[in-house]
Design a protein around this nucleic acid. Structure first.
Length: 892
DNA sequence: GCGGACTGCTTACCT
DNA sequence: ACAGGTAAGCAGTCCGCG
């Protein structure tokens, strides 16, 4: 079985690494690393390097495949890569044979460094090498000395690491495996082959016709030439469908409402399922004396293979073996639950360390024979949620995500897990794995393709990409771009010292700088409203106004006159900023190429979809590109950059509004990058567009056109109806997730009525209907005709119960009542509660009864929900429900 | 001791 | 661990009135 060679070696690596885990933990503690500090993997312990001399561990008849990860082998002191072989559908490894070593830089010369005893006698010290780097902060070349070390921990991660010895160390906090990726120009997610022991990228030729077409679309931009060649292979290389299985476990849990504790793993694992994208459905079931087998549920998968076990340890051992058949293991919350539980349970059952292919760190769980993707972490990522999936799921549970994206939910149970007949248990467990797998498959493997694409752009391993946030993705991309150009990666403290702090005052307390403008809306109903907006405003500004950490407040005197409005910041006129180039390029190629291609009717459906995935991936980077500069943990943090971006944004919208008014247009509303204009003449729009393009260097586009818009006096609140009757609702209470269902229903009915309105005259009819809706709902509250569920507010617990000490919001009050009843609650849980008469004023739905409902509170709530719309229609809620001022005082 | 004015906290939203 | 701006409801505090 030659194709298993790589894997066997790999297994060996991991069991070795695992033993060093406690050592590594201790060292971290000793070094006093702050949370979130870069972890260096591997142990410090010196070991013989048995793999040296053997160039790679790759099956003989493999096929070149996708690079999925680069990691560090602490036992053998080598970086290694894991790749997917599409022919054998297995992972194989390549070990570094290039003599690459961990390093960092110092600005001291070799002689001075040699005089530092602690450095040259450090047991990890390897040698020095003088190099020249380009320092963007001073805009000058800089002589640096590269300090090479035997292992990552010698550079950083312990209290006597080299970076602690030096007065100042550059690039010493980049994790070694990332360094390796940059230096070897490896791109995770692209295809590589092993040639005479070396890892070689598959060459990518850009068809010349395509290149011409691209140049035509993007326009002539010499600074983009190299970037285009660099990025095109990432966008255009197809993504293989990688063999994978989803895993889910069920645990015996006698106490209701208690989630089994994965760190103690006290209870039996009673079922495990693996569902693969090659139609394998394997269910591992523990036979228990007291539990009946039952009948197979209707939709039980016909081809499912059930393996029964008398002994739990044997079952787990079998599961571990089965897992190794899959290059990728997918879970939903496996980092914190399934894999953690399996590992700790296996230890508890005295299974040997080296027979458990799971490696735990404080936060994560890895599978040594596979790549582990925890979909919970991926879907939890705000950027993915908002930009890739347009906020379609609002909670990050398997049930909520699956309902939103697949239109299927979890199976609801009428008894506890441990009481289920075996077949019901098997089905329940299988279903969760099946749904988890499908989350990676729907829409032509959208999620897997998105992950691979994001890996390519960020230069991150699959396991890192799916666990880190957009800030990390951008950080890694920028690191790579610096390395590629031989730029010295600046120290955050140097950027801070040179660039200083913000100059503008935020409107919100405790914020660091002023943000966008929101124009006061013109309350009322307005027919024929055009919405114009700046296409990708902030990225456009970063590109057009040359914003970057080195170009804002640059070192040149002659640039000091180039001032950002409302600030004293100036911008470089001499060189293009690196951020400006990269963000500018990504913006242009998204807007001018991938966005139109994703809608192009001349392309095949499949191609359109791929272009749309690229377009969405780029959007994620672009939308975060300004925010990261105002976020301190970002290593290129530079307040003047974020502040200048926002300031120019304010300038742009103000100028555009002034110009529009001078063209006699009626501005109804605007927010950040948009303006709502009442019935604008086509000619005036064209003139405004030309003017903004010319004078402000940003594109103003017609985004949408409303038949009419209803504004109240509130900002970020409106209801618009398009020509075709579709409705666009922003910010209104009736649409919020935490609004009780009864109010959402009534609100929906009101919206339906409004959406049927064609003309000014129709409104009168609509007003009557709306009054009826409000009245009906009001009476149903009065008579308590809604169920407790319909009365319930659903509010998310954003932190642990004990950390609410400043105030006790209502959902926390309700949660504490539940908690007293023995229910375990954690951050992210949704609390359903109703308002009741009596001292607390609230009660969780589970404990409430209808009698205690506080109808007055609900009447008030209905009023405020409806008033957001009624205000602008000139209707009084109180009049509708037929109460006079006096009556409303007396009711109760 | 009470109630209104005020501030602060929290969540959910918009761009 | 991307940013700031806005709405809404409630919790908690302060202060003046009687």
């Amino acid at each position: 079985m030659p194709e298993r060679v790589g894997l066997l070696k790999y297994m060996q690596y991991d069991s070795a690494q695992k033993k060093e885990e406690p050592l590594k933990k201790a060292e971290e503690a000793e070094a006093g690393l702050e949370e979130g500090d870069e972890e260096e993997e591997g142990g410090e312990e010196e070991v013989e390097v048995e793999f040296k001399g053997l160039p790679y561990f790759c099956p003989e008849n493999y096929e070149p495949g996708s690079l999925l990860s680069v990691e560090y082998d602490g036992k053998n002191n080598l970086a290694f890569a894991r790749l997917y072989d599409p022919k054998n559908k297995r992972l194989f490894c390549w070990y570094d044979n290039t003599n690459h070593h961990p390093y960092c830089y110092s600005d001291l010369d070799e002689e001075k460094l040699r005089s530092i005893k602690k450095l040259v006698t450090h047991k990890g010290f390897l040698g020095l090498e003088e190099v020249e780097k380009y320092d963007l902060l001073s805009d000058k070349p800089k002589k640096m000395t590269k300090i090479l070390a035997t292992d990552p921990l010698a550079i950083g991660g312990t209290s006597n690491s080299i970076r602690e010895i030096l007065p100042k160390a550059w690039e010493a906090r980049i994790r070694y495996h990332d360094n390796f990726i940059f230096d070897k120009d490896l791109i995770p997610g692209l295809s590589y082959r092993i040639e005479k022991g070396n890892i070689v990228s598959t060459p990518f030729e850009i068809p010349s016709s395509l290149k011409k077409e691209l140049e035509l679309s993007l326009g002539k931009a010499p600074e983009f030439e190299d970037v285009l060649n660099e990025f095109l292979p990432l966008f255009l290389t197809p993504v293989p469908d990688i063999k994978r299985a989803a895993l889910d476990i069920e645990v015996h849990s006698p106490i209701r409402d208690r989630i089994p504790d994965s760190s103690t793993a006290e209870n039996q694992v009673i079922c495990v399922s693996l569902v693969s994208n090659e139609n394998e459905n394997t269910i591992f079931l523990l036979k228990r004396k007291d539990v009946e087998t039952g009948d197979k549920p209707k939709n039980f998968p016909k081809d499912a293979k059930i393996e029964y076990f008398e002994n739990e340890a044997q079952m787990l051992t079998r599961v571990f073996k089965a897992m190794s058949d899959y290059p990728i293991i997918v879970t939903f919350n496996g980092d914190n639950f399934d894999l953690r539980y399996l590992y700790n349970r296996a230890i508890k059952l005295s299974i040997k360390h080296e027979e458990i292919p799971i490696v735990l760190t404080r936060e994560f769980a890895y599978v040594s024979t596979s790549i582990h993707i925890d979909l919970y972490r991926f879907f939890h990522n705000r950027s993915i949620q908002v930009y890739a999936f347009s906020d379609r799921y609002k909670e990050e549970t398997l049930d909520a995500v699956a309902k939103a994206l697949l239109n299927v939910g979890k199976i609801s149970l009428d008894k506890s897990i441990h009481e289920l007949p075996l077949f019901d248990l098997a089905y329940y467990c299988w279903w969760d794995s099946y749904v988890t797998l499908r989350l990676t498959q729907f829409d032509d493997n959208l999620v897997m393709k998105l992950i691979i694409l994001l890996m390519r752009i960020s230069r991150l391993s699959m396991e890192d990409l799916t666990r880190q946030g957009v800030s990390s993705w951008i950080k890694n991309l920028f690191y790579y771009e610096h390395r590629l150009r031989n730029y010295l990666i600046p120290l955050p403290e140097d950027i801070n010292r040179i660039k200083g702090i913000g100059e503008t005052k935020a409107i919100i307390k405790d914020k660091k700088f002023r943000g966008a403008i929101v124009v006061e809306p013109e309350a009322g109903v307005h027919f024929d409203v055009a919405v114009l907006d700046f296409a990708s405003l902030y990225p456009s500004i970063i590109k057009e106004y040359n914003l970057s950490y080195e170009t804002v407040r640059c070192p040149h005197n002659e640039c000091r006159t180039n001032i950002v409005p409302e600030t004293n910041h100036w911008v470089c006129k001499k060189r293009k900023g690196i951020t400006s180039i990269i963000i500018g390029f990504l913006r242009d190629i998204r807007i001018k190429w991938f966005k139109p291609k994703s809608k192009s009717s001349t392309l095949k459906e499949e191609e359109r979809k791929w272009n749309s995935i690229i377009e969405r991936a780029l959007k994620v980077y672009l939308n975060a590109s300004y925010g990261v500069f105002g976020n301190e943990p970002f290593p290129f943090y530079c307040l003047p950059v974020a502040e200048s971006t926002a300031a120019i944004g304010r300038y742009a919208i103000q100028q555009a509004i002034t110009k529009a008014k001078s063209l006699r247009m009626n501005i109804l509303y605007g927010d950040t990058d948009s303006v709502f204009i009442k019935n604008p003449p086509e000619k005036a729009i064209t003139e405004l567009r030309n003017w903004t393009k010319q004078e402000l260097r940003v594109d103003l586009e017609t985004d949408k056109y409303f038949r009419f818009v209803v504004f109240s006096t509130r900002k970020k609140n409106y209801l618009g109806v398009f020509k075709d009757g579709t409705v666009d609702i922003k910010g209104l209470t009736g649409k919020k997730r935490n609004t009780p269902q009864f109010a959402q229903q009534a609100f929906r009915k009101m919206v339906e009525t409004i959406s049927r309105v064609q003309s000014v005259e129709d409104f009168e009819r609509a007003k009557n209907e709306i009054q009826e809706i409000a009245k009906t709902c009001y009476n149903k509250i009065k008579n308590k005709e809604f169920s407790l569920e319909e009365f319930a507010f659903r509010v998310m617990l954003s932190k642990s119960l004990s950390s609410y000490y400043k105030t006790t919001p209502q959902h926390v009050k309700a949660a504490r009542q539940l908690s007293k009843n023995g229910k375990e609650l954690k951050p992210g849980d949704i609390i359903s509660f109703v308002k009741v008469r009596g001292k607390d004023g609230v009660r969780p739905v589970e404990l409430a009864s209808k009698e205690e409902i506080d109808t007055d509170k609900y009447k008030e709530y209905l009023k405020s929900t409806f008033d957001q719309i009624l205000d602008s229609l000139g209707i009084s809620f109180d009049r509708i429900v037929g109460i006079t001022k006096l009556e409303s005082w007396m009711s109760g």
